[in-house]
Every structure is written in C-alpha cells, then in structure tokens.
C-alpha cells in the first residue's frame, strides 16, 4: 500500500512541477531555449550567416509538432513494450506451471 502511495506522490510531484509554472506564469509565450539561443547569436553577431540549411524542414508548425509527437509516441510504445514484457515474465515466474492436460 505504501509503495503505491509513494508512486502516486512521485507522479503528482512531476505533474505539479510543470503545471505550476503554466498556471502561475501569466502570459509568457514559453519560447524554446534553443531558439532563444539562436536569437541571442543573431543579436550579438548580426553579421553571422548560417552556412548550412536543414536538409529537410517540416512545412508547417502543425506537421512539426506531429513529428515530435511521433517521436514521443514511438519511444513510449517501445518503453511500454519492454516494461510489459518484464512484468509479464515476473508474473509468469510466480505462478506455478499448470498441470499437464490428460487427453
């Protein structure tokens, strides 16, 4: 029972950690730090020209967020598969093999 309580508290802590800034942060745009760094370079070195373009850019921000979701989804499926198999293995070890069926 205590084990489950700790798990629930950990999950709540993670959720709170990211929900609180969103709720309390007001009207910030939450720009990505990667693009902020790029802006910083463009500000301090207006003469700098990126010398290489991305080989492929998703056409719109919708497609881009879809591809990010795909990446997270694929990772989540694999992680879930592994954890499910490990758990299934443990449960199978715990239950004794059924008696042979007589025919």
């Amino acid at each position: 029972m205590r084990r489950h309580l700790v798990t629930v508290l950990l999950v709540l802590a993670v959720v709170a950690l990211f929900a609180v800034p969103l709720l309390a942060g007001g009207d910030s745009e939450y720009a990505g730090t990667d693009s902020q760094a790029t802006e910083l370079i463009e500000e301090s070195r207006p003469d700098y020209q990126p010398w290489f373009e991305s080989v492929f850019s998703p056409g719109s921000s919708e497609v881009e967020s879809g591809l990010f979701a795909l990446q997270a989804g694929v990772g989540g499926v694999v992680l879930g598969y592994v954890l499910g198999r490990l758990r299934g293995r443990r449960l199978a070890e715990r239950t004794p093999a059924p008696p042979p069926v007589e025919t």
Partner: peptide
C-alpha cells in the same frame, strides 16, 4: 527529448 516542457523562467525546454 521530444517533449518540450514549460519552466518557471517563462521559456520551455
């Protein structure tokens, strides 16, 4: 690494 999360600084990473 696919999930951008908001932070207290008002940016996300």
């Amino acid at each position: 690494s696919a999930i951008k999360l908001p932070s207290v600084t008002g940016s996300s990473s």
